[in-house]
Design a binder for these strands. Structure first.
Length: 279
DNA sequence: CAATAGCCCTGGTGGC
DNA sequence: TGCCACCAGGGCTATT
């Protein structure tokens, strides 16, 4: 799915077009993406509401309605949130179509329907959306410091890759940007989190901020499904160091990139730059 | 607790 | 061309 840079690109792209618009109609074509409350209550809570703001936290999209309820969207693997100008074609995998008072539409589309739509009050959020409530620090934020990273790394005895994918540690990293950050900081994905020395932690910290920043600059990474809120592809796939590059030369040392499986996730790394044991 | 396997879904791809 | 196993950018839940 979209990781943090992709979700950021979506939110920034559609913000001006949907803020202060009123939702005048809601067509639910695939109700199973609505997780809470029931479909009918979900529709009732959003219908005729004005959208006051839209923000991102980690990989979550949060729409603020004038009644005070929050519409929380998570795209998971193949979800898309698309702004569709009046009269233009709607994605064939549309699940929920929101008509706006401008005549335009906001469409949630999702081939695999693993994504989720929830409407909650602020009071309900901690219980209903634990993943959102328990998110760790955002890369590039003031809260995300080397001290923060050091502290959480030292408490963790598992492998560094699943550690970085855990949203409770750092919010927004996914499979692509984790592999990229580890490649740039030259850390093997199966090293244990608490085995990193100070230089490696500093290097990893810089690499995380760098790959996320570059991803945002490039408008995200598109292999197949990802599109921003206006239907455009990202370009970061052209600048990847290891992800989806097995057999191709490492950009640092020309050694062929290898693909392995770490905790069930496809993982790309340079066997020369990213040694399991330090020399 | 922390770590890991299973599961939710569908469709594109590559091997035979 | 057809069939089929496998894989996919995520994260929740149950189990150990």
């Amino acid at each position: 799915m979209p990781e943090m840079p992709e979700v950021e690109s979506i939110v920034v792209g559609i913000r001006d077009k949907i803020c202060n618009r009123v939702i005048t109609d809601i067509e639910v074509k695939k109700a199973d993406v609505i997780k809470y409350p029931t479909k009918d209550v979900y529709v009732k809570l959003l219908l005729n509401q004005r959208i006051e703001a839209i923000n991102r936290r980690g990989k979550y999209i949060i729409m603020y309605l004038e009644s005070g309820v929050l519409h929380v969207i998570h795209l998971r693997m193949t979800g898309k949130l698309l702004f569709v100008p009046n009269g233009e074609a709607i994605d064939k995998y549309a699940c929920v179509i929101f008509s706006l008072d401008s005549g335009d539409k906001l469409v949630y589309a999702d081939v695999r329907r693993l994504g989720t739509l929830d409407v909650v009050t602020k009071a309900e959020l901690p219980q209903r959306l634990k993943g959102l409530y328990n998110l760790g620090a955002e890369p590039l934020s003031a809260e995300f410091t080397t001290a923060y990273l050091t502290e959480i790394l030292q408490k963790n005895h598992g492998k560094i890759k699943p550690f970085l994918l855990n949203q409770n540690h750092i919010a927004g990293l996914g499979n692509i940007y984790v592999d990229e950050a580890l490649a740039i900081s030259k850390i093997h994905p199966e090293r244990t989190a608490d085995s990193l020395n100070t230089a490696e932690i500093n290097s990893l910290y810089e690499a995380i901020n760098r790959v996320i920043s570059a991803g945002i600059q490039d408008g995200g990474t598109t292999f197949r499904d990802y599109r921003n809120g206006l239907g455009k592809k990202g370009s970061h796939q052209e600048h990847l160091y290891v992800y989806n590059r097995q057999g191709k030369p490492c950009r640092f040392c020309q050694t062929p990139i290898e693909k392995i499986v770490v905790n069930g996730r496809g993982t790309y790394y340079c066997p020369s730059c990213q040694q399991k044991k330090r020399k």
